[in-house]
Amino acid sequence: MTAASTTLVLGGARSGKSTFAERLVDGIGLTKIYLATATAGDDEMHVRVAQHRRQRGEGWITVEEPLTLVDALTREATVGRVVLVDCLTLWLSNLMFAERDPEIEAKRLVRFLDVSRYPIVFVSNEVGLGLVPETPLGRAFRDAQGRLNQIIAAAVPNVAFIAAGLPLWLKRSQEN
């Protein structure tokens, strides 16, 4: 896997996107960094985090970073490593709840990707295929998620959409 292998993995809830992303980086011979953006604020999220750790298995270094994603990537995306960011959706919700500007943070992330030489796999939810959220906050989140996915998809050489655990490659570099 090379820097050109940086990939965005999109899909709906329980589509298999995290499992697919883990398989992309599992067994490529590099140190695997799992950059988790989730915060376990309640019992149900503690269970989900534990399930994800069990699912990943051994051999992953977990780094938890709910807000300062670019800073964490600057530290963790180095020679001999591949970073899996799971997920941009939770990162976005964390930014919104912290009253940070998602557009500024997304532009910062794209600037980082422009100079990064190391492979990164991003996981993100495709939220635009469902019902229109009934609350203003829900609609604002859906819109921000759609914009974030578009910005990252444009910045990376590979984009896969996962449905029922199966990938549909929307964009794939010739180096893979």
Rank of each mutant, 00 (worst) to 15 (best):
V115L: 12
E44A: 12
G29V: 01
R139P: 06
D143K: 06
I151C: 02
L30Y: 01
T62E: 12
S173V: 10
G11P: 04
N94G: 14
L92M: 12
L166N: 11
R111D: 15
A155C: 07
Q51W: 03
D43C: 02
G12C: 10
V85G: 02
T62Q: 08
R48F: 03
G11W: 02
L129N: 04
R108F: 00
A13I: 09
R172F: 00
S93A: 13
D26K: 15
D101V: 07
N176E: 15
T6V: 05
A38M: 09
L35F: 02
G57H: 14
I104W: 07
V70R: 12
K171V: 11
V127R: 00
L88S: 02
T37K: 13
G165K: 05
G11Q: 06
P102K: 13
L10V: 02
W60Y: 06
T39V: 14
R100S: 02
W60D: 04
S173R: 06
G128T: 12
R14S: 10
C87S: 13
G146V: 00
T6D: 07
P119S: 09
R108L: 11
N94P: 11
F97H: 14
Y34I: 01
V156T: 12
D101H: 12
G165R: 03
T135V: 07
S93Y: 03
D71C: 00
V115K: 14
P66G: 07
V82N: 03
G165N: 08
I162C: 01
R147K: 15
I162G: 01
V132S: 07
V123L: 04
P119C: 05
L148N: 07
G80H: 11
T7R: 06
D143S: 11
A144D: 10
E22T: 10
E126F: 09
V156G: 04
E64Q: 15
G138R: 10
Y34S: 00
N176G: 14
R111G: 06
V83N: 06
K17N: 11
A164P: 07
E65I: 01
N94V: 09
G130L: 08
V83S: 03
E134M: 13
E126D: 14
T78G: 05
D101C: 12
D26E: 12
T68V: 00
H46T: 13
L166W: 06
V127F: 09
L95R: 08
L90R: 08
W60P: 08
R111C: 01
T78K: 15
L24G: 11
I152A: 07
V83H: 03
A154Q: 14
I61G: 00
A4N: 11
F97D: 02
S18R: 06
G80R: 13
G130M: 08
E103T: 08
Q145R: 00
S15L: 03
V82L: 05
T6F: 08
R117E: 14
Y118D: 11
E22S: 06
L69K: 07
I120E: 08
R147N: 10
R142H: 09
Q174I: 00
D42C: 13
P66I: 04
A36V: 08
L95G: 11
W60I: 03
T7L: 06
R147D: 13
G41Q: 03
I152V: 15
V115G: 08
L73T: 03
E58A: 15
L109S: 01
V9G: 12
D71M: 00
M45K: 05
G27K: 02
